[in-house]
Nucleic acid binder design. Structure first.
Lengths: 235, 235
DNA sequence: TTATGCATTATGTATGACATAATAAAATTA
DNA sequence: TAATTTTATTATGTCATACATAATGCATAA
């Protein structure tokens, strides 16, 4: 069909800007494995000359790579390839006020998934010192858990410690990114109202299981512990 | 102590560039909730004038926000605030060849955590059509699972479908980001050699549980299913 | 040999100009 | 008058040039 093929031609129109092209070229250069971390890339003027564009365009493309954490540029040395701290970078752009509602809700869910799923790593890597610290956190807890006016700081301290125990820094960073989102969603009108404000398995109960139980038991206990959050998602 | 306070003064030296300051100022402007998605921010020249810097600096700061997905700029309309597609953005910068080894390993672990933790969402949101599709995927599977030369595409099809069932688009994007990393780590020398190449719970077994079992059963089954991966992490 | 200062160099910042595309306003036509 | 085309305006995109700044290496002096 003539019209159809015409439409396809339209859709394949190259609408990308000059900078887009240069950026793609540079990214591909990195992906082609010809360059490793620590290697430096040609200087701006050289790139501008070789690609036949202005230094402005090159600078903008390089800037994008820099924001993405792929390179780092020093005053004299030029730009060098770096290993990006992904979550550090996106943490900057995770702004509860700006993210749309469905994304916010999904990030709320993500936390529940992570805390249930990380059981095996906790059991594999926990140390006696960790257990001691957990017990200390729990002991300091205000026992007014019934009215759900539980201290947010204690929540963060306890659950944050669990992430720490997994020994997975990326996971920890992920949590740090999720924290403000979770708090925001929790207090916004995005979810159903809190119906049952009962706490099932307590923090202390979780610690007991960590000490004497199994990953399997922990998963179920954590699922139970988070019931109040789940109940706001499912009806 | 004089020296000490002097050193503190040194450490607090402001080493940030002009663009850094402008960027921070703009981000704060967004976070201050005075602006919502869809609102447009002042034009470049106006910002340059108001902040007393050149248009070059403003452009670079705005560009950073754009790369982070916080704004989008159109030809005439100026820049408007947008809700960032976080994982879409970082997917670009997730390059297994560039990420350092420990991060790669941690992202490998992240997948295991997610797939075990997402049980409740699968059970809550699965439809009969989903089950039918899962069965179809399983039926097409090459049953040469013993020698572990299982088809990568089938792995992706099956596990990808599970992510899809959760109905969490953010989670799905997260998986898409993790996929190449997981594959890379799996085939690189980063982990221990595969010792037992036995498959415990099969894909078919998982489907059975989804159909007739509980989230609790699924978590344990998935943990078992992923044993080959876990065994390469733990000794 | 060790500092110190100087020259060099590549990125950072500033300015001015023009291109381009999207919007609004004006003009033309039915 | 209403609909359509043309034109003008405007803000971002690209280019070119100049100078500032900071890091590096070399030369010089103590």
């Amino acid at each position: 069909m003539a019209i159809n093929s015409l439409m396809e031609d339209f859709s394949s129109l190259d609408t990308s800007s000059l900078v887009d092209k240069v950026e793609a070229k540079l990214v591909q250069l990195l992906k082609d494995q010809k360059l490793n971390v620590g290697d430096s890339i040609p200087k701006e003027l050289e790139l501008a000359e070789r690609l036949g564009v202005s230094r402005t365009v090159i600078r903008e493309a390089l800037l994008r790579l820099r924001v993405m954490g792929l390179i780092e540029s020093k005053k004299k040395k030029g730009a060098v390839i770096t290993s990006p701290d992904i979550f550090g970078i996106i943490s900057k752009s995770v702004n509860p006020h700006i993210l749309d509602q469905s994304t916010l809700k999904e990030m709320f869910e993500l936390r529940l998934i992570l805390e249930i799923g990380m059981a095996d790593f906790i059991f594999q890597r926990i140390t006696p010192a960790d257990i001691k610290e957990l017990k200390q956190i729990v002991s300091k807890e205000p026992d007014a858990t019934q009215d759900y006016l539980f201290n947010i700081e204690h929540e963060i301290a306890f659950h944050g410690k669990l992430y720490e125990i997994t020994g997975n820094e990326t996971l920890k960073k992920f949590q740090r990114m999720l924290l403000p989102v979770f708090d925001y969603v929790h207090h916004s009108g995005l979810l159903k109202k809190q119906v049952s404000i009962k706490r099932f398995v307590s923090h202390k109960g979780l610690v007991d299981i960590i000490e004497n139980g199994s990953p399997e038991m922990f998963r179920n206990a954590m699922r139970n512990h988070l019931e109040n959050h789940f109940s706001r998602l499912f009806e």
